[in-house]
Design a protein around this nucleic acid. Sequence first.
DNA 1: GCAAAAGTGTTCCAGATACACCCATGT
DNA 2: ACATGGGTGTATCTGGAACACTTTTGC
Lengths: 223, 223
Amino acid sequence: MMNDQGVNDTLQVATDVVVFSILQQTLKVLLVRRSGNPVNGVWALPGSLLGIDEDLDASAKRALADDTGVSGVFLEQLYSFGKPERNPQARVISVAYYALVPSEQLRPTPGRNDDAVGWFALDRLPALPFDHREIVSTAHHRLEAKLDYSTIAFQFMPPTFTLTDLQDVYEIILNQQLDKRNFRKRLLASDQIEATEEKRRDGNHRPARLYRVKHPGEVQYVK
Amino acid sequence: MMNDQGVNDTLQVATDVVVFSILQQTLKVLLVRRSGNPVNGVWALPGSLLGIDEDLDASAKRALADDTGVSGVFLEQLYSFGKPERNPQARVISVAYYALVPSEQLRPTPGRNDDAVGWFALDRLPALPFDHREIVSTAHHRLEAKLDYSTIAFQFMPPTFTLTDLQDVYEIILNQQLDKRNFRKRLLASDQIEATEEKRRDGNHRPARLYRVKHPGEVQYVK
DNA sequence: GCAAAAGTGTTCCAGATACACCCATGT
DNA sequence: ACATGGGTGTATCTGGAACACTTTTGC
């Protein structure tokens, strides 16, 4: 199994997950710092080698839960990365996934192989091993694109939220200001969210009506 | 490497390619009939096991060339399929690709491991092994979707073509009639094709002007 | 009463749609 | 001259973009 350079020459498959959330009005990615070999003390994407009888989706889900304690969130296959030189220690194909976590809902906790987990802004990422930066970048592009033609943004929302909360999510991901009236008109016309009877009072201003998504967990195509 | 059921329990990665073309005014898929084991005499997607030092894209390209003689065409990664039970003989993850071949340009020829190659209409596919039917279906959805927001249809065109030829391609893939004037207006406005000085004379009617794509080989996002 | 965010409608413009007739050729 | 597919323009509709003031609360 080892060739004469000490390199394992069997093929392995891993799943790696780019976890996005919006914290402190910023789009962030969840990274873990591994305590074990081969990458001691370096921040990397949560991930795992694929079990011999394990489904790809299940592997990504498990990697996410084991490494970060996050579960029950939107998770979708992104792309497979397989340059022979991407990992110098071994030949590993990475089937990458991305996940969206509702803002401030989950407190990720390090798994038993991890030193720490942490949220990082996209423009403040630490050095990442292998092609993890390319994976993050591909996931970011996918997220931006899907915002335009699907209800993917709802996956960032807690069970109830205000229209301003939702608009903030769009503005942060698209990195541009949106018109409040047009945004509300479009969202309400899409028939994907509904008003609750509740309002949120905070600060010294008019309370905001709370909404909920009509089909939580489902990402639908719109337009 | 073999367990006591005679099943190889190492993980393997394959690339499989869904090749589309438009022949006889129909969207067709290219299949190969394997002469060797394990699938003797059954039609399947062209594909290959990934070499230990081979890039995924290179593997798909090679599989396509080896199995069908097709090369130099549009080829893009589609999705990775990895259900543990998808292949009962071995644990194989398939990284699927799809390719588009210009109509009537290439004459596919069987590779040395193949019995035959053939084009099949999507609603006239033979029984396919593993999850190849699901892979074809996923590729078909991708193709339909990309037609709307990219110049992917140009990949089906020969070097020069008439606007009616191009409209036929759209109508076949979308399976609906399009308005001739609106189609021409939109295509010409997109600034992606240009008129040549040539015309094509066939049949007893006015000759049609031939066009060419401005950026052949590139698939651009439009709209 | 003032500061702060919530909430609400109309006009304008651009791009998509619907639609019918003349043109150039071969036989 | 006629049959065949090639080629063209205008009116209408619809969805997106721009834009400013009133409301409700806390202090």
